Structures are given as structure tokens and as C-alpha cells.
Simulated scan of single mutants.
Amino acid sequence: MTAAKLPAECASKDDVRAEIDRIDQALISLFAERHGYVTRMAEIKTDPHEAYDPKRIEAIITKVRARSLDLDLDEDQAELIWRTLIDWNINYEKGIIAARRRAK
């Protein structure tokens, strides 16, 4: 396996695409790891309404925006990605919790 290249070290579109593909593989692994924790949270929670916690959501978004600025990443773009992820997780948790309650 070749070492990662910095953006400025990429001499061609193929170089850039290879690095984006490498990062995408790392991201999908991290999303899968995160999903395991979301699933565990859904197992711990007892009421579907617990899946939506506005204070927690805004605390997460505040951290994401601050970290984005630290990394010179557009904070609006990062917020949009995280809000999408959070919305998906809320719906997923609600479904798991509701299904478990129906099965009782």
C-alpha cells in the first residue's frame, strides 16, 4: 500500500481520486463504527421520544462547527452533513425502540 499524498503532492486527477477513495474507505469504516454505538443507544433507550434530544443535538452541532473552523472546513457544510446524519440516526433509533416495544 502506498503512503497517503497531501493534496499539493497530487500531480494528476487519478492521484486526487485515489486519495479521495482512500479517505472514503476510512469514512465508511468510521460511519460503521459510529452506527454500532447508535444501535447500542437504541437498545438502551426505552421510549422512541428519547431519540430526539434537541439540547444534545445543538451541543453536537456547536462542537462540529467549532472543529470545522479549526480545520479550515466550511462550517455550514459540516453542519449540514451532521444534521443529516443526526436526523437519520434519530429515525433509526425510533424505529428500533418502537419495534422492540411492539414485540413485547
Score class of each variant (00 low, 15 high):
8 A>D: 05
8 A>N: 12
9 E>T: 10
10 C>A: 14
10 C>R: 11
11 A>H: 08
12 S>D: 09
15 D>S: 00
16 V>E: 09
17 R>M: 09
17 R>G: 05
17 R>E: 05
17 R>Y: 05
17 R>C: 08
20 I>C: 05
20 I>N: 00
21 D>V: 15
21 D>N: 14
21 D>H: 08
23 I>W: 03
23 I>E: 08
24 D>E: 11
25 Q>L: 02
26 A>Q: 12
26 A>R: 06
27 L>D: 01
27 L>S: 00
27 L>Y: 09
27 L>R: 05
28 I>D: 09
30 L>M: 04
30 L>R: 07
31 F>G: 00
31 F>C: 04
33 E>A: 13
33 E>M: 14
33 E>L: 14
38 V>E: 02
40 R>I: 06
42 A>S: 08
43 E>W: 02
45 K>I: 05
45 K>T: 04
45 K>Q: 03
46 T>A: 10
47 D>Q: 07
48 P>K: 02
48 P>N: 03
49 H>T: 04
49 H>Q: 12
50 E>G: 03
51 A>V: 02
53 D>I: 01
53 D>F: 02
54 P>R: 01
55 K>Q: 12
56 R>E: 14
57 I>C: 07
57 I>S: 07
58 E>F: 00
58 E>M: 09
58 E>R: 00
60 I>W: 09
62 T>F: 07
62 T>R: 15
62 T>G: 13
62 T>K: 09
63 K>Y: 03
63 K>C: 05
63 K>F: 12
66 A>G: 05
68 S>A: 14
68 S>C: 13
69 L>S: 13
69 L>W: 14
70 D>Q: 13
71 L>Y: 15
72 D>R: 02
72 D>T: 11
74 D>R: 06
74 D>M: 10
75 E>S: 15
75 E>A: 15
75 E>N: 02
75 E>K: 13
76 D>C: 10
77 Q>A: 15
78 A>D: 04
78 A>L: 04
79 E>G: 11
80 L>N: 08
81 I>K: 10
82 W>M: 12
83 R>D: 00
84 T>Q: 06
84 T>M: 09
87 D>C: 06
88 W>Q: 10
88 W>K: 08
88 W>A: 07
91 N>Y: 01
91 N>I: 00
91 N>E: 02
92 Y>L: 10
92 Y>V: 03
93 E>C: 07
93 E>T: 00
93 E>S: 00
94 K>W: 03
95 G>H: 00
96 I>D: 04
98 A>C: 07
98 A>I: 07
